[in-house]
Design a protein around this nucleic acid. Structure first.
Lengths: 144, 144
DNA sequence: ATTATATTGAAACTTATTCTCAATATTAAA
DNA sequence: TTTAATATTGAGAATAAGTTTCAATATAAT
């Protein structure tokens, strides 16, 4: 964990920015989540620990954490963005129920294989991907 | 084209909704676009033809057109959604260069097959999907 | 220490999208 | 063809995510 903090510090310095306690606090909280989150949740978690971090700082820090590769925006729901910590995860896909909002993750090596093949053919260097599938979950498809 | 209008009419009726001139007008305009669009563009196109369609009606019709499978939301840009007409297109994926922002589309039937298989196994009813691959395009991967 | 500059929190702002509501249109049934 | 039930409309108000502003403060290089 500490090496992730250190890497982030180096990244910030390398960009000519200033390393602040607020940025570190936000990063530590996100690393502790190890899962999906949105700005509101993160803000309330920090607030619950008597942190004085503002939402503005969270909004300002997120793009940095995406750039350094620690988190990704994975989908929009309820009118706002949801992120996930990508550090300990394989690339995967999301099923999102358009009615109840339930999100399910899945992994499939054939998808990863296919994507590797696209990479070889395309000449791109792939860094990450998102596969989001929208529809109705088994429960909601029954209910009218 | 008329059969698409007719299918939409049947879809609307089947849902117990009412088939209105406004809904048809919006559909006709979107079918004429055959490409990417956003709500503002669509609204101005209609307005330019002396249509009195409101933005509210456009926002209310879009989810129906997504549900019937005629359009998809493909990305957010400039803080708002962009859609594309999917009728004449196979579902496809986007390569997005993280450096220059270039977007390339690609098709692969195996991806569609895989997604159909996920659908069968998951119990979901899939309405649309979005595969975005982020990385560096052939040009940007060379430039340090 | 000094200085230049980046960052902060709070609040104001922007703007895409949703909601409200009274008037009107659609549809099924009498 | 009337009637009645209900869905839809446009207009504008409301909502809320995300961005920007700004004065005070913190960082970090010299």
């Amino acid at each position: 964990m500490e090496h992730l903090i250190e890497s982030f510090r180096q990244f910030i310095k390398q960009k000519g920015l200033k390393y602040t306690p607020e940025r570190e606090e936000i990063l530590r909280e996100i690393l502790a989540i190890e899962d999906h989150f949105d700005v509101e949740t993160l803000y309330l978690l920090l607030k619950g620990k008597n942190s004085k971090i503002s939402k503005a700082s969270i909004y300002r820090t997120i793009p940095l954490l995406i750039e350094v590769g620690y988190i990704q925006e994975v989908y929009k729901q309820g009118g706002h963005s949801h992120y996930e910590v990508t550090l300990y995860k394989q690339p995967h896909l999301h099923f999102i129920c358009m009615k109840c909002g339930q999100v399910r993750e899945a992994l499939d090596h054939r998808l990863n294989d296919l994507i590797k093949e696209f990479e070889a053919k395309s000449g791109y260097k792939f860094l990450t991907y998102h596969l989001e599938i929208f529809g109705l979950c088994p429960y909601c498809r029954e209910v009218k």
